[in-house]
């Protein structure tokens, strides 16, 4: 059984799962997950590779539906509303819950057009230049690209590309940002920039971040969830999970004894 430490009373739930299970064909990838992501907090998902972190993240913006063999069971609530309800359009879900991927995936077009893509498909083209600038500023990329907005996104360094992808996500003005190992392809300096960025974004967004780096989880997150073999083993405030976990498996993992 999982150990779920209580969440302080002041924290409002933004996302909640109840008995969430995911199967790929007949293989279970997640089993009975109960997890609450509070608003304006950073929640880290940690656990060994293959334990289901990315799968869990994709449940929150219904990206699993794009994988033909994936099947989701259980409930996911977003501000109390059933995310998988019959009348809910996954397209709207994804506009409100953004996602940044493990490897930067800018579109093969200009820096400007990358950031403008979301507003354009949403029909928000009034003040597009300001929207793009604001998103780039929020992603701490504006000063580096302000003079080259029409250059190809592929001319940026990998670290810049990842910040561009963050800017692209922010330009849609989501309420929640999901990040799947956003710094795993980056060097230490670029990683540090992303971490600083996460710290700033917390003001306005709830952030759910998958990371394979325990130090990163400890540095950036308020809450940490430890997943193992598709199950949620322990979830609670980050300092508690790292310094005083209840579950033996959590302790073994955070002290680096396995994984």
């Amino acid at each position: 059984m999982a150990t779920i430490h209580p969440i302080p009373a002041g924290d409002v739930p933004a996302l909640q799962t109840e008995q969430l299970s995911v199967y790929y064909g007949s293989n279970p990838a997640l089993r009975g997950i109960d997890l609450t992501v509070p608003r304006n907090r950073v929640v880290a998902l940690i656990g060994p590779s293959g334990c289901g972190k990315s799968t869990l993240l994709r449940c929150f913006n219904r990206m699993n539906e794009l994988i033909p063999e994936a099947r989701v069971e259980g409930t996911v609530r977003f501000n109390g509303e059933d995310l998988y309800g019959e009348r809910v359009d996954p397209v709207n879900v994804r506009r409100r819950i953004g996602m940044v991927f493990q490897r930067p995936n800018p579109f093969p077009r200009s820096i400007f057009d990358n950031v403008a893509f979301g507003p354009r498909i949403n029909g928000n083209t009034t003040g597009l230049a300001q929207t793009v600038e604001r998103a780039l500023r929020q992603a701490a990329l504006w000063d580096e690209v302000r003079d080259r907005l029409n250059e190809s996104a592929y001319d940026l360094s990998v670290g810049q590309q990842q910040r561009l992808c963050i800017a692209r996500t922010l330009a849609v003005r989501p309420e929640i940002v999901l990040m799947d190992e956003p710094a795993s392809a980056l060097d230490p300096i670029a990683t540090q920039r992303i971490e600083e960025l996460i710290y700033e974004l917390k003001e306005d967004y709830s952030i759910l971040i998958v990371t394979h780096s325990l130090q990163q989880a400890a540095r950036v997150s308020d809450y940490t969830a430890f997943l193992y073999h598709g199950e949620l083993v322990e979830y609670g405030p980050t300092d508690l999970i790292f310094t005083n976990p209840v579950e033996e498996r959590t302790e073994a993992y955070v002290t680096g004894r396995f994984g």
């Binding site: 990206m63 794009l66 996602m99 991927f101």
Partner: peptide
């Protein structure tokens, strides 16, 4: 990954096909 990036921004299947896949 390009399609996923567009889907994650709230693009419909048609927008992904028309604005991302076809130009690329």
């Amino acid at each position: 990954s390009l399609r996923d990036g567009a889907f994650a921004l709230g693009a419909t299947r048609f927008e992904v096909a028309w604005r991302i896949v076809l130009p690329a």
